[in-house]
Design a protein around this nucleic acid. Structure first.
Length: 215
DNA sequence: GTCCAGGGCCTAC
DNA sequence: GTAGGCCATGGA
């Protein structure tokens, strides 16, 4: 039974192919991912816009920026102290090791890139994987809260299942192309935000016929 | 006022 | 190794 595949198709049918917000550079994509931790996408986009207007959204500026200045700019996002540190460290790392050239960095093997990303304080597993998928365009499965919550509710995965096992389940049902994994991720996020919330709105959810946990 | 958002990290057990 | 608390702000 290809349960996940069915869900994927149903979501595609309901929401259509999601459009990834356009970005001017790989660095912008990475910055967005780092800033999005525990906050809303719209908030992040407006802060990114501000950084762009001030011509600060680049490796050179952010690696030499005063930490308090950056923290102030990121204030509306919450957790600004840590995000400022993380974004600055990320920029410094790019500059020191790859002359600020993300193309060069992301040509490396995904295992290597992941290891390097995880050394940067503030970048954990989810952020590293999200950067690998969206920034480096590697076929990586990103396990985030939405994915876990939704797939648990529809019975594709079980509570307490390890990340490696979750990946295996997904691998068995979804073809691991960058395009597919990106689309799946965006669809799950959309569903999670609109219907499959912490307190779910099951009545209107496009998956309610497939879901085992109708409340 | 309350809930929750594309998490990560530190501390206990 | 894993469960729980904490970080911080904004919008619904």
């Amino acid at each position: 039974m290809k349960h996940l595949k069915k869900i994927y198709q149903k979501l595609l049918q309901h929401f259509g192919t999601p459009i990834y917000p356009s970005a001017e550079s790989r660095f912008e994509i990475c910055a967005r991912i780092i800033l999005t931790q525990r906050t809303t996408w719209q908030n992040v986009l407006s802060v990114i816009q501000e950084l762009k207007q001030k011509k600060m959204l680049n490796v050179e500026t952010l690696s030499s920026i005063d930490l308090q200045t950056l923290e102030h700019l990121l204030k509306p996002l919450g957790l600004s102290k840590r995000k400022a540190e993380c974004l600055k460290k990320f920029s410094e790392y790019c500059l020191e090791h790859y002359e600020g050239n993300l193309e060069k960095w992301f040509k490396k093997d995904e295992i290597e890139i992941r290891k390097e990303l995880l050394q940067i304080p503030g970048i954990g597993e989810e952020t590293a994987d999200a950067i690998l998928l969206a920034g480096a365009e590697k076929p990586v499965i990103v396990i985030d809260t939405y994915l876990k919550r939704i797939l648990m509710r529809v019975g594709v995965i079980k509570k307490g299942m390890k990340t490696s096992k979750i990946r295996e389940v997904i691998r068995n049902e979804i073809e691991l192309t960058v395009e597919n994994l990106r689309t799946l991720r965006l669809l799950l996020i959309e569903l999670g935000q609109k219907y499959c919330r912490d307190k779910p709105l099951c009545a209107k959810c496009p998956l309610n016929l497939y879901c085992e946990k109708i409340l």
